[in-house]
């Protein structure tokens, strides 16, 4: 779901960035005023969490891959604005350090994955869970909400991809950026996400909500006992599981390199061939000189740690402003 560099025209990127900036600004403001100090470090753990979930690639029907995000989970635990901020942080780290998702398209990615996803997921969850008295109903709400959240984000991504060939064509009539129109992009993105990735997201979310309910219910309900150690254990478990993400061999839909797309579409769109290229230090979570699996685990640890550090800094700033 991470839109790479040059798949969207610079104009689209500018529009999406303009949409993402107020999202982050409002999120920072809301988190500062609404989230209690005690919960601020939890946001960092949430961001680390989402970072790791996005590294766990699942093979999707059609030879592509996808992943869960965990945005709805964070929205349920800490509120949708906190989720927006957490997932944005994870996306920024992914783009700059690991080359997952483009720099120019970061605004679009933040809008789709960090804004649409948690808000849609949270709204559906609230709608279904009702007063939250029935346990079964609540779990159903968690599952359906997270499924809808992920698919809403996939739909937005597909529409952004699909609009490119309609809007931006070269002199020869060939698309300049993403070559697939809406009629291809939407089914190609939506069917696998509805069938596999959305289900995985729902499964993850339900399992983790159940786990947190058991280990540290204070993170969901006021006044219950809290055991943050359980959450850190979850992060460690996810790090250990991350190499499973390497089993899914294909590339995610719409995240091909220029060569791959040349084989798939028969030609390389002009904007893709000669566009802006940011070379991340650790492209695709690998590092030269290290075998794939240890490199992937190392990137998972590094990414999770740096997300927590970033968030604790933000939390520190917020505290200073308050006192």
């Amino acid at each position: 779901m991470h839109i790479p560099e040059n798949y969207l025209s610079p104009a689209t990127c500018a529009v999406m960035a303009a949409a993402a900036v107020p999202v982050i600004a409002v999120a920072v403001k809301k988190v500062r005023s609404e989230v209690t100090r005690a919960k601020l470090p939890m946001l960092g753990v949430g961001a680390a969490f989402s970072f790791l979930l996005m590294m766990l690639n699942l093979p999707l029907p059609g030879g592509t891959t996808g992943h869960a995000v965990g945005g709805t989970l964070i929205a349920i635990l800490l509120g949708p604005w906190s989720a927006a901020l957490s997932v944005s942080t994870a996306l920024i780290i992914q783009a700059f350090l690991f080359g997952d998702g483009g720099i120019l398209s970061l605004g679009a990615n933040i809008f789709n994955i960090a804004f649409i996803l948690p808000f849609v997921g949270y709204a559906v969850y609230k709608l279904i869970s009702g007063d939250g008295k029935s346990k079964g109903r609540e779990y159903a709400a968690v599952a359906v909400g997270s499924w809808f959240g992920l698919n809403a984000a996939a739909l937005f991504t597909a529409v952004e991809f699909g609009l490119q060939p309609l809007l931006f064509k070269g002199a020869d009539g060939l698309p300049l950026y993403c070559p697939y129109p809406l009629s291809v992009a939407i089914p190609a993105m939506m069917i696998p996400h509805m069938l596999v990735a959305g289900v995985a997201e729902a499964l993850f979310t339900v399992l983790i909500v159940a786990y947190i309910r058991k280990v540290s219910p204070g993170d969901i309900y006021e006044g219950e006992r809290k055991r943050p150690k359980g959450l850190y254990a979850l992060v460690v478990a996810l790090i250990a599981a991350v190499p499973l993400g390497l089993l899914a061999a294909g590339t995610a839909w719409g995240e091909w390199g220029a060569e791959e797309i040349g084989e798939l579409a028969g030609y390389v769109p002009a904007g893709l061939a000669g566009g802006f290229e940011f070379s991340a230090i650790m492209p695709d979570y690998t590092i030269s000189g290290l075998p794939e699996i240890p490199g992937y685990i190392l990137s998972a640890i590094f990414g999770a740690a740096i997300t927590i550090v970033l968030f604790r800094l933000i939390a520190g700033l917020a505290k200073e402003k308050k006192s």
Binding site: I287, S288, F302, A305, V309
Partner: peptide
């Protein structure tokens, strides 16, 4: 790659 290993170690301590 080897600096990256130590960088990860230090970042975890920072966190």
């Amino acid at each position: 790659a080897s600096v990256y290993v130590t960088l990860t170690f230090v970042t975890v301590q920072l966190a």
